[in-house]
Design a protein around this nucleic acid. Structure first.
Length: 256
DNA sequence: ATGGTCGGGAGCCGA
């Protein structure tokens, strides 16, 4: 089965892209970020017609996450971390066909040292605490989404220019390392060791054409799932289409 | 050449 994450940067604009990509890639589970739609406006009937059930946690203008599942109805939904009073819709956890799936739209953080940066680190710490509990209850755990963190220098087109900048700073990478330490691995790196593999490219400066990107969209899987890991990839095709999202889908393939 | 591009929504903020 195929599990995917894709920051669509407005589902309103990207609905045709999503349709075309679902038909081509045939994923079983899809985590979407930056839907930018309040729940009343989520196109669930249109997506149901494509063969996917969906759950979502959205808001107007900003953020918004959704999970699409081809066979099983997502169950035991979590959209808010206990004790975390946050109006920003950035997290959606559900059980789908025996897997616990946590879809994250991690805070961007704007600039190192800013208020939003402090919020990012606090958000990550709280979410990590919650996911540690999820991992204890659900051995088959997948945590995926837009992490807004490039894990290592080989995930960055120009590590010197990005050194200690937002998405690459040591505290952000340390926060990601802590999340991994609850018992998760970055599945892309279980299969690929090369640099130059990215999932996001700025709209400016023809960054995609020049492959000036970062790998910030990740699929993490628990160690219990290790024997089932069959492949990981980033699908560059939708980034080449007209009026694309600035992110490409990242995928994990699991054996039954 | 000290900017550049998107999306949302009507200013400029967020990424």
């Amino acid at each position: 089965m195929k599990i995917a994450t894709w920051n669509v940067n407005s589902l309103n604009v990207r609905m045709p892209h999503l349709k075309q990509w679902l038909a081509a890639a045939q994923p079983d589970i899809v985590a979407l970020q930056e839907t930018k739609l309040e729940d009343a406006k989520f196109p669930d009937t249109e997506i149901a017609a494509l063969g996917y059930r969906c759950v979502f946690s959205g808001q107007k203008t900003y953020n918004g996450v959704a999970l699409l599942a081809r066979h099983d109805m997502p169950e035991d939904i979590v959209t808010d971390i206990p004790g975390m009073d946050d109006p920003q819709r950035r997290i959606l956890i559900a059980t789908i066909g025996g897997l616990r799936i946590a879809n994250l739209y991690v805070v961007n953080g704007q600039a190192v040292g800013s208020e939003k940066y402090a919020y990012k680190l606090d958000w990550l710490a709280r979410v990590t605490d919650h996911l540690a509990g999820e991992a204890a209850r659900h051995p088959n755990l997948v945590v995926l989404g837009d992490f807004n963190i490039a894990p290592e220098d080989r995930d960055v087109h120009d590590p010197v220019a990005w050194k200690d900048q937002i998405l690459c700073s040591v505290p952000e990478r340390e926060a990601l390392r802590k999340l991994l330490s609850i018992g998760l691995s970055d599945t892309f790196r279980d299969f690929h060791q090369n640099d130059g593999a990215f999932s996001w490219w700025d709209y400016r400066q023809a960054a995609f054409r020049r492959n000036l990107g970062l790998r910030i969209d990740l699929v993490l899987a628990s160690h219990a799932l290790r024997p089932r890991l069959a492949g990981a990839s980033i699908d560059l095709e939708p980034r080449r289409w007209d009026r694309p999202s600035d992110h490409a889908p990242a995928l994990l393939e699991l054996n039954a």
